[in-house]
């Protein structure tokens, strides 16, 4: 039985797809058989971030409509052992996904994988609700910015009332992933700090990913940022995955990094 993880946020453009790709790849790198499922029907992008866009033949909607088998639609990642991608469809039909179909596909995937990572569309309406409905665990991606924090709180409300777990009187496990964090602006009092966001949302902190040039570079190349093991963002995501797997990892990249050769050579450990 796989653990179903939804990467969600309410607000659009905060880094769900970036984070899904990083977390899915990271889990596979750590030896867990993982599938990344793109729920963003009509706006699929996970394939592009994972660099497999030219290998998409069938998608999630095809499998739901029995136009393809799961094995036909799953794309095996060429770089990372044990990692597969199930792309979303580009259809404009918003009702292409249905409850029963998604449940059947997730049940089938559950037999094959350790982790199912669902990349949610933005919003708190049907598409986002379906992506989170079957989740055991939610990773709530938040930017240190007022509208993102508010929307995260709203999506937490949905998780607590409209998920399968909630309907069965259980709780979806919640994790906060703060991304695009800029320590210099936090220090200047121009950006909400990690403590501020944690205090407001009151859910456990999985990790803080700094605003990083490495993310754009990675997406340009179609490589999840965790494969850039030198990068701050890549390391922050791998730390978060370590914590997800139950390890103690100190939070890094929360302070302004001193620039220059000296600090680069001597200043940072690990």
């Amino acid at each position: 039985m796989a653990e179903i993880i939804v990467v969600t946020s309410g607000k659009g453009g905060v880094g769900k797809t970036t984070s899904s790709a990083a977390i899915g790849t990271g889990l596979a790198l750590r030896g867990h058989k993982t599938v990344l499922v793109d729920f963003d029907v009509g706006l699929r992008n996970l394939d592009l971030i994972m660099g497999c866009e030219r290998r998409v033949v069938f998608d999630l909607v095809n499998v739901i409509n029995n136009e393809a088998t799961l094995n036909q639609a799953l794309i095996r990642d060429k770089r990372t052992e044990g990692l597969y991608i199930l792309p979303a469809s580009q259809t404009r039909d918003k009702d292409a996904l249905n409850h029963e179909g998604v449940e059947r596909v997730l049940n089938e995937l559950s037999e094959m994988f350790d982790y199912i990572v669902c990349d949610s569309p933005a919003g708190i309406e049907k598409g986002a609700q379906l992506a989170l409905y079957f989740a055991d665990t939610a990773i709530v991606v938040t930017n240190p910015e007022v509208s993102s924090v508010r929307d995260s709180d709203r999506i937490l409300g949905v998780l607590q009332s409209k998920s399968r777990k909630a309907e069965n009187g259980e709780q979806v496990k919640e994790h906060l992933l703060l991304t695009r964090y800029n320590p210099a602006r936090v220090q200047a009092g121009e950006m909400l700090s990690v403590e501020d966001v944690q205090e407001i949302l009151a859910i456990p902190l999985l990790g803080v990913v700094p605003e990083s040039e490495a993310v754009l570079k990675a997406s340009n190349q179609g490589q999840p940022v965790v494969l850039d093991s030198e990068s701050d963002a890549g390391q922050a995501y791998m730390d978060a995955i370590g914590r997800f797997l139950g390890e103690e990892r100190e939070h890094r990249f929360l302070e302004v990094q001193r620039k220059g050769l000296f600090s680069r050579v001597f200043g940072r450990k690990g």
Binding site: V146, R150, G189, E190, M191, L192, S193, D196, I200
Partner: peptide, 11 residues
């Protein structure tokens, strides 16, 4: 600071 204002509004 503006971050403090943001926090209070959010709370």
């Amino acid at each position: 600071t503006s971050a403090n204002v943001a926090k209070e509004r959010l709370q």
